[in-house]
């Protein structure tokens, strides 16, 4: 299963040190705040307790968590639905064209996240491109208010993370032995059944990787809901941001962050487990190809 993974490798030491010094230690320090409480004038009272975690479970905050999860889940689902056909089409293209198609799929990634998100404001505005287009097509009703809605937030999230999902699904689909598809057809299954019983199950690890990626980055996101959701729209990310920067309640912000990180780690571990299982299967299938 794991060739060298069990043995610590000295070559990885610089990266590990970097992670520990600049990632794990600062995060751990922030998370420690979660067990203390906010001082009367801001700052921190070093008074060990679990009150902050109790507050996270409060229906008000739990509701924001649930809403964030729902939005992240919807974004992940939509991204998969849009990315899968695209990735499938790219694997079907001539091998010489595939790198170019992938380049175009990933192109938005190379531009600034903020600029990309602002572009959606231009599009979705009451006076924006979409409403102008609708008017041009003969729609004369009240301009649609698309901006500052949950739909706008989901659109922004899907748009921003789509390239990664395409890449993740493409990477599993392109590794699939084409003779498996032919074998299914040969055994009497038509194209649809072949897709549902062979192609799709064998590309689920890519779907899971892409989906988990979108979900994790979406549930903790605060730029997209802040810009496209407007001030009255809150996700966990905005809540954490507010606790640290406006409410000056670092301990509660830290508790929210800790819950979020725990959720992410669990999901990532599930996904890693799934990928490991899937790669074992494909390795077995291509060993004597």
């Amino acid at each position: 299963m794991s060739y060298n993974a069990a043995r610590p490798n000295l070559l990885a030491a610089p990266a590990v040190l970097w992670l520990v010094a600049f990632m794990i230690v600062p995060c751990a320090l922030i998370l420690l705040f979660a067990f203390f409480e906010r001082g009367v004038f801001g700052g921190i009272d070093y008074n060990l307790n679990l009150d902050n975690f109790r507050r996270v479970a409060d229906p008000l905050y739990a509701g924001i968590f649930l809403r964030s999860a729902r939005i992240a889940l919807t974004a992940a689902g939509l991204a998969i639905l849009i990315a899968y056909p695209a990735a499938y089409a790219i694997t079907r293209a001539l091998p010489t064209r595939q790198p170019i198609l992938l380049f175009f799929a990933v192109l938005p990634f190379w531009s600034n996240y903020l600029i990309r998100t602002y572009a959606w404001i231009v599009l979705l505005n009451r006076e924006g491109l979409v409403n102008n287009l609708l008017r041009g097509l003969g729609y004369h009703g009240e301009p649609l208010s698309m901006l500052y809605t949950e739909g706008a937030v989901i659109t922004g999230l899907v748009y921003n993370y789509l390239p990664f999902v395409i890449l993740a699904i493409y990477s599993t689909l392109s590794k699939l032995n084409p003779e498996l598809i032919e074998a299914s057809r040969d055994l009497g299954a038509g194209p649809v059944r072949t897709f549902l019983r062979v192609t799709l199950p064998l590309s689920l690890s890519g779907v899971a990787a892409g989906g988990v990626f979108v979900f994790i980055l979406s549930i903790g996101n605060f730029v997209t809901p802040a810009l496209l959701g407007g001030g009255r729209f809150q996700m966990v990310g905005n809540l954490v941001y507010d606790q640290f920067l406006s409410a000056n309640d670092w301990p509660f912000g830290a508790a929210l962050g800790m819950v979020l990180i725990t959720l992410m780690i669990v999901l990532l571990m599930l996904q890693a487990h799934m990928t490991a299982r899937a790669s074992g299967e494909t390795r077995g299938a291509s060993a004597d190809a």
Binding site: N177, E179, L180, E182, A183, V198, G284, D288
Partner: peptide, 11 residues
């Protein structure tokens, strides 16, 4: 057809 790579469904 019996394929050269056997093409057994790995899942």
């Amino acid at each position: 057809l019996m394929f050269q790579s056997y093409a057994l469904f790995p899942h």
